[in-house]
Simulated assay, not measured.
Amino acid sequence: MHDPTETIRREQVKEINSDPNGREVLGAKHGEVWDTSGLQQKFVVLGFMAPYVIVARKSDGQKGSLMFQGSPRFYFGWSAD
Rank of each mutant, 00 (worst) to 15 (best):
I8Q: 14
E6G: 05
M67Q: 14
D19N: 14
Q69N: 07
F43W: 11
E32V: 10
G38D: 02
P51Q: 04
I8H: 13
G61V: 05
I16N: 03
R73V: 13
L26Y: 08
L39D: 03
G77M: 04
Y52T: 07
L46F: 07
A28W: 01
A56E: 14
A56V: 01
Q62Y: 10
G64A: 01
R57F: 08
V55G: 01
Q69K: 10
E32L: 09
G47P: 08
I8W: 14
Y75P: 06
D3Q: 06
H2N: 14
I8L: 13
S37R: 14
T5W: 11
A28H: 05
H2P: 15
S59Y: 06
N21M: 13
H2C: 08
P51H: 02
K14H: 15
F48H: 12
K42C: 06
L66A: 02
K63L: 00
A28K: 13
S59C: 07
S37A: 15
L66F: 00
E11K: 14
F74T: 00
N17R: 02
A28M: 09
T36Q: 10
D19V: 09
Q12T: 11
V53S: 04
S18Y: 02
F74I: 05
K29P: 01
V25D: 11
G61D: 05
T36Y: 11
V33W: 00
N21D: 07
F48D: 12
G22M: 03
G38A: 08
G70Q: 14
D3G: 11
R10E: 14
A28N: 08
D60C: 00
F48A: 01
M49V: 11
W78A: 06
E11F: 12
Q62F: 09
H30F: 15
T36L: 12
D81F: 15
E15T: 13
K58H: 07
F48S: 12
R9T: 08
F43I: 10
G47C: 02
G22W: 05
T36S: 08
F68R: 05
K42S: 09
Q12W: 15
P72V: 15
G70L: 11
F76H: 05
N21G: 04
Y52D: 02
T36H: 08
G27K: 12
T5M: 09
A56L: 00
P4E: 04
N21F: 09
V33Q: 00
S18P: 07
S79V: 13
G31H: 01
K14F: 15
Q62C: 09
A56M: 07
M1A: 12
N21K: 12
A80R: 10
I16A: 03
G61T: 06
L66R: 00
W34V: 03
A80M: 08
F68K: 03
F68A: 02
L39E: 05
K58Q: 10
K29G: 04
F68V: 03
F68S: 00
V33N: 04
Y75L: 06
S65E: 12
Q69C: 02
P20N: 07
L39M: 12
F76R: 06
Q62V: 14
G70M: 11
V45P: 14
G38S: 07
K63G: 03
P4S: 04
R57W: 10
I54L: 10
T7K: 11
T7W: 00
E6N: 09
F74G: 04
M1E: 13
S71R: 15
I8M: 12
S59L: 09
V33Y: 03
D3V: 09
G64H: 02
D35M: 00
M49L: 13
L26K: 09
N21S: 09
S65Q: 13
Q41F: 09
H30R: 07
